[in-house]
Nucleic acid binder design. Structure first.
Length: 612
RNA sequence: GGGCAUGUAGCACAACUUGGAUAGUGUACCUGGCUUCGGACCAGGUGGUUGCGGGUUCAAAUCCCGUCAUGCCCGCCA
């Protein structure tokens, strides 16, 4: 960030001096005029003269000249020039290289971090998959986005809580109860449930099972029934199975909230009472919604609004969601209690809401980010609108409406079995298995790893490949999944970046260094491939900021491609070990590059390897 | 009918929030490079009416208006 700031300082001062304070232009506006041109023109540039030209009614070229005349360059900016009105600055490559390398050396794993959050708490909810099926490749997109955005926000100094919401009530669970009976389980539990769910839905479509389902549903929604107890048990067991998948991909959580607890803990009723008191919900006395509690004031038109409690007294999904968010955003006095749910491979315990747990420091934030598919846009809009009122403008819900994943053949429906394939299924488990197999083949051919390490390394590379392939795309875009693309390991890929990291490692090892080395001679620095790389490495903070503010990890993926290919060009063209006088400097650049690639991959949740 | 999102080389993406210099990257296709720190690599080339039509501007993929196409949503389902 400092190069941008240094440049802004210079320009801001120069404008003040050049126009004796008669031109009023905000720092923000100057900031927006900054660009990093691709060509030879400049290392950093500003188009602010065009804007000022309009104010002072002069032509941009004259204005730029005037500004440049009053410039006092500060290191590492050494030369300013005017080209057709653009104010171009040149950096001293030796000085700038020293600054960037020192900074990376100083901050190491924290290089690229910045303070945007001031430790403000944010609850990030993902992927909230129903506990009756395995995660498919669409759920995986949600989970990876949530996980990566959590990483990024943590590195921007937010206090992040990774939350999962488990809908263990509702129709789909009643159907599962009916489907599985006392069947023997011979495969992974989530897959077993998923297949049974598809089977029973075929039967429901063809037969007369509706009344059976609604009987179960009714009993399930009552507390203290066998069905109620059993459904929770199935849900927990299913989530445990789903989390095996999550852990394979390096996805972790802090807290899980089960829908049964939203209702059971009395939290739902408290929430609805509060809504009534605030005049935001009312019981309808006639019309279609007669006898229902409806979101919307008494004056709301007939037929408008959303049902929160049905005339039968059973809460709706949206009703429970609102209650849940009132807790999430600390609007309710009433609290959930939590118990240990599972110890995760990263060493942290995930806690779940539980009848007999204890109160813990979950929820109660001012900011909630929901990573939920675009299909839920309307509900999410209702939610965030409600909370603008409820929270007096201090509470906000941000819905990241990511585009859903589909197949060429159609949707990945859980109910009709769109996620089931002929050879492999479109599950997250199968995707990882297929990708790992593919990577083991490549690894064998390369003969860089001893046989005993091929499997574990290839799994890491596979996770990197998949995570990168998902995260490199703008969250809002819809995705059509294809095996051929998923299994592609070439340039714009995770393995490519991981490969460059491994290459860097191997160069450093060959040079006989393990840690860092001190460089005091930057004379060998040129304006070639070395400087192109250094300029990129210097931009990390800018990139992380953008990714955080926009909730778009793809910004980081894009950056990784840039650094990795610049690094590749650098070491292909500027030999390190045989670099003579330049050897130490080049080695330092390799060490710095390795660090930045490692940090940025880390934000995407990709673990680096030393060899592959 | 109303709302939201998307539309950029054959294919997959970036640049759009904040207008700025020749619209970037990968794949595919064509050409070249391993006795060299690791070829999951590098160098060069072909390929673009930024869906379409207007407008604003010194300057539009980017902003505004209109229009077309695609997907999703609009239930006392979740």
């Amino acid at each position: 960030m400092y190069i941008r700031d240094a440049f802004l300082d210079i320009i801001e001062n120069a404008i003040r001096n050049a126009f004796d304070g008669t031109v009023v232009i905000g720092r923000k506006e100057i900031d927006y005029s900054v660009l990093f041109p691709a060509g030879e023109h400049a290392d950093i540039s500003s188009s602010v003269a065009f804007r000022i030209a309009k104010i002072v009614k002069d032509n941009p070229k004259n204005v730029a000249d005037k500004i440049i005349e009053s410039v006092k360059p500060i290191n590492p900016i050494v030369k300013m020039s005017n080209l057709n009105g653009y104010i171009n600055a040149q950096l001293d490559e030796k000085e700038y290289c020293r600054m960037v390398i020192d900074e990376i050396e100083k901050k190491k794993g924290k290089y690229g971090n910045l303070n945007l959050g001031n430790l403000k708490k944010v609850v990030i909810e993902f992927p909230s998959v129903n506990p009756n099926k395995p995660w498919h490749i669409g759920h995986l997109r949600c989970a990876l986005l949530g996980d990566s955005i959590s990483n990024v926000m943590e590195h921007c100094n937010y206090k992040v809580e990774r939350m999962d919401y488990i809908d263990d009530l509702g129709l789909q669970m009643a159907e599962i109860l009916l489907a599985i009976g006392n069947k023997k389980i011979e495969k992974k539990y989530d897959l077993f449930l998923g297949e049974e769910y598809v089977r029973i839905n075929t039967e429901i479509r063809e037969g007369h099972l509706e009344s059976k389902v609604s009987d179960i549903l009714k009993k399930m929604e009552e507390t203290e029934t066998e069905e109620n107890r059993r459904v929770r048990e199935i849900a927990e067991r299913c989530v445990h199975a789903q989390y095996e998948t999550a852990f394979d991909y390096g996805i972790y959580h802090d807290s899980l909230v089960f829908e049964t607890d939203v209702v059971r803990e009395g939290l739902f009723n408290t929430a609805m009472d509060l809504l009534k008191k605030e005049g935001m919900a009312s019981i309808r006395t006639d019309g279609n919604y007669k006898g229902c509690l409806v979101l919307g004031s008494k004056e709301t038109e007939e037929g408008e609004g959303k049902v929160l409690i049905r005339s039968t007294g059973v809460p709706t999904y949206i009703g429970k969601d609102i209650a849940f968010h009132m807790w999430k955003l600390g609007i309710l006095e009433k609290k959930f209690r939590f118990n240990e749910f599972i110890k995760q491979p990263n060493g942290k315990i995930a806690y779940s809401s539980s009848q007999n747990g204890r109160e813990m420091d979950f929820g109660g934030s001012d900011l909630a980010i929901n990573i939920i598919g675009s299909a839920q846009q309307l509900n999410q809009k209702l939610l965030s609108d409600s909370f603008e009122i409820l929270g007096n403008g201090r509470k906000s819900i941000v819905h990241l409406a990511y585009g859903e994943v589909n197949l060429k053949e159609g949707s990945l429906s859980g109910r009709s079995g769109g996620w089931m394939g002929s050879g492999a299924n479109y599950t997250a488990d199968d995707l990882l298995r297929e990708t790992t197999t593919r990577i083991i083949d490549v690894s064998r051919k390369n003969k860089k790893l001893e046989e005993g390490k091929i499997n574990s390394t290839s799994k890491k590379v596979a996770v990197g490949a998949i995570r990168f392939e998902y995260l490199r795309i703008d969250p809002l875009k819809k995705v059509i999944f294809e095996w051929s693309r998923a299994l592609d390991l070439e340039s714009n890929s995770g393995p490519y970046c991981m490969y460059m990291h491994a290459r860097a490692t191997s160069i450093i090892e060959k040079a006989g260094y393990t840690e860092s080395l001190k460089v005091d001679d930057y004379k060998q620095m040129t304006r070639g491939y070395d400087f192109e790389l250094i300029k990129l490495l210097g931009n990390a903070e800018e990139i992380v900021r953008k990714a955080c503010v926009e909730l778009r990890p793809n910004v980081i993926a894009e950056y990784l491609i840039d650094i990795s290919s610049a690094f590749s060009r650098f070491y292909e063209n500027m030999p390190v070990l045989t670099g003579g006088d330049a050897m130490r400097l080049r080695l330092a650049i390799v060490i710095a590059s390795k660090q930045v690639i490692n940090n940025m991959l880390g934000l995407l949740g990709i673990e680096t390897v030393e060899k592959m």
